[in-house]
Nucleic acid binder design. Sequence first.
DNA 1: GGATTGACGTGTC
DNA 2: AGACACGCCAATC
Length: 108
Amino acid sequence: MEQSFYDAVYDVVRLIPKGRVTSYGAIAKSIGAGGSARMVGYAMNHAQEADPPVPAHRVVNSSGLLTGKFHFATPTLMQEMLEQEGIQVKEDKVQNFKKLFWDPLQEI
DNA sequence: GGATTGACGTGTC
DNA sequence: AGACACGCCAATC
């Protein structure tokens, strides 16, 4: 079966550099999905079972909020991972999000 | 195959 | 400033 919408999302997310984050909308645009930001998040749900694994913890919503943290093994895992990469997270929000934001369109 | 859903985004009240 | 509403679009049931 052909690569589906998911594979495109996975590929972009895997391109996110360590210590950086991006938003669902940005990914959606990069794959040509436009305003289908929801689809990106939907794909990320499967990302847990995707192989190779996708750094979904580097993907947050446009506000820098860790909206999908509850979809990880543990709700705190996402924050832990981000902090490991040097990203400051407070109240489930990525601090300095604007600076840490990585736009896939700039890479692709 | 129609209806529902969803890790979102932007705007409005 | 916080809460609510609508829009997008593909996958799943």
